[in-house]
Design a protein around this nucleic acid. Structure first.
Length: 505
RNA sequence: GCCCGGAUAGCUCAGUCGGCAGAGCGUCUCACUCGUAAUGAGAAGGUCGCGAGUUCAAUUCUCGCUCCGGGCUCCA
């Protein structure tokens, strides 16, 4: 109890005559207060339960210490918390520790370094990354795929700048609601400018650039847009929490009547795109209005919330409702994916917005010639390309499928005599568009195999005298249990790789 | 932002109770020419994160800053 002066304070406050402190009121308002005694010297006021005595903890290991705000409120003092893990048996404890080690091996920050994908140089500043060639080619594959899907989905590609006048963010409401998350303004000769924290205000300007007809709706504007948001220093975490990132962002302008259909087809689109990246399990969350932190009429909110709900229900999707978790301008559906080791990541978001069209005074001409207000949907599928890549690295543990792998094939000549043939194989595969490298026989074959495996290359081809004679290759498939496949005709291998790439497996 | 911890070679890390710093891996050179997860020998490689202070002397002690890690809080 001596170590829990705050609990002492609660008890004093509760027992103190006429005390009206918040804590006292809160505790005294409950049905009862429970105490647990684990030894003569450790008595804890706690809702419990506690184990009868520490012997029941079984096999444990202390893991870390960290600060934690009293009652989870950052305005309150900070306490020291000691974290440990306890298991019934030594075996289970050990298994848990092994699981932690495995998770650490897929940490995207570690793999990004090991696989030379990207880095976070201190000289660049916190929460900012530079992409190296191998990370860059993967990113290009991701973005190219996204662009292709959006082309197919009748999205219109737009580009907008990284800075905008403060007036734009006054109009959009961001300066009112989100100034803390925006970078400080730049004063220039003709006004005040901010790095953009969102793309939507600019897309609204594009909509508003001329008179719009109902015939144009839904108008789907798409951009891989870089945004900058101030994240507090202690919250930064590799690619998963970063200060500059790129959204696969779209704003869809449609009529109120089109909204349910548009949401329904969006849900299909999201799921289909995420599945291409190897995700199979999805969780849906519907977030509703927080009256304290929102704008717009109840009518608008109800309409938008119902449209989202209808979209989910039309698909028969199970979803959870997060009351009060909506954006300031509207309700949303967030989509979480489950990765290869069962962890959940929030990626996609679909947000209804009746507010921005109002603020930007957007209109279209209806069939009857009347001017009407469009409805707007914000949506991102990957969310942030940077964050998505971080999740993808962890999902695949760095072993990217062939269509994403920075190097798809490494060709290893058994000895110097086979070098010329290895170069031929490389030339042939490169010519048809594969990313392929060769490593000369300066080191023993075993070592070169090992290095290629550590780089998680999908296919390692070994070529020796037999292969030179017969136009074949020895194929090592990443992760295969059996030994290498010998004497595979080169054309046959090329066909197999092409199929992998095409099917994104 | 807050609490605790950290920053030494390209990477992983040891070390200096204050006296111009080390290993393994990697890199480079030479030899080896090898059929499936580490060939051998040699060499190069460091403003000991940045800035101030104390000291005859600071990578080491003190202070400030930057960046990183584990949490907390926050995340349109």
């Amino acid at each position: 109890m001596a170590a829990h002066s705050y609990k002492r304070a609660i008890i004093d406050a509760v027992s103190g005559e006429g005390s009206q402190s918040e804590m006292a009121g809160e505790v005294a308002g409950g049905d009862s207060i429970s105490f647990y005694r684990n030894s003569d010297t450790f008595i804890d006021m706690c809702v419990g339960p506690h184990v009868p005595h520490t012997g029941h903890l079984g096999h444990f290991k202390l893991m870390s210490v960290a600060g934690a705000y009293w009652r989870g409120d950052e305005k309150q003092p900070m306490l020291q918390r000691i974290y440990g893990t306890a298991w019934a048996s030594k075996k289970e404890l050990k298994e848990h520790l092994v699981r932690l080690e495995e998770a650490e091996k897929r940490d995207h920050r570690r793999l990004a370094k090991e696989l030379d994908l990207l880095s976070f140089p201190a000289a660049l500043g916190g929460g900012l990354a530079v992409w190296h060639p191998k990370g860059g080619i993967i990113r290009k594959q991701i973005e190219d795929y996204s662009r292709q899907r959006h082309l197919d989905g009748d999205y219109k590609f737009v580009y907008t700048p990284n800075l905008a006048s403060g007036k734009l963010f006054e109009t959009s409401g961001h300066l009112d609601f989100y100034a803390d998350g925006m970078y400080p303004p730049m004063e220039m000769d003709n006004g005040t400018y901010y790095p953009k924290p969102m793309n939507c205000p600019m897309h609204c300007l594009i909509f508003d650039s001329r008179q719009r007809s109902y015939r144009e709706l839904p108008l789907r504007l798409f951009e891989l847009g870089a945004v900058y948001r101030y994240e507090r220093a202690g919250t930064l975490h590799g690619l998963l929490r970063i200060r500059g990132f790129t959204q696969d962002d779209s704003h869809i302008y449609c009529t109120e009547e089109q909204l349910p259909n548009e949401i329904a087809s969006l849900l299909d689109f999201v799921i289909s795109v995420l599945k291409a990246f190897g995700f199979e399990d999805f969780d849906f969350r519907l977030s509703t209005r927080d009256p304290e932190k929102s704008v717009g009429s109840d009518e608008m909110w109800d309409l938008a919330t119902e449209a989202l709900r209808e979209g989910l229900e039309r698909h028969g999707l199970e979803y959870r409702v997060d009351e009060g978790d909506g954006a300031f301008y509207g309700p949303k559906i967030d989509i979480d994916v489950t990765d290869a080791i069962g962890r959940s990541w929030q990626l996609s978001t679909i947000q209804a917005d009746f507010n921005s069209p109002e603020r930007f005074d957007l209109e279209y001409v209806a069939p009857d010639g009347q001017r009407k207000r469009p409805v707007m949907l914000h949506r991102a599928l990957l969310g942030s390309v940077e964050r998505f890549f971080g999740v993808l690295i962890e999902h695949y543990a760095g072993a990217f499928p062939a269509w994403l792998a920075p190097v798809q094939v490494i060709v290893l000549p058994v000895a110097e005599d086979h070098q010329a043939y290895a170069a031929e194989v490389v030339g042939h595969l490169a010519e048809v568009g594969f990313r392929v490298e060769s490593v000369a026989a300066n080191d023993p074959l075993g070592k070169r195999i090992r290095n290629a495996k550590l780089q998680k290359v999908p296919y390692i081809l070994v070529v020796g005298a037999d292969d030179v004679a017969n136009d074949t290759v020895g194929v090592n498939v990443r992760g295969s249990e059996g030994g290498p496949e010998r004497d595979v005709p080169l054309q046959q291998f090329a066909g197999r790789l092409a199929k992998d790439v095409e099917q994104r497996t």
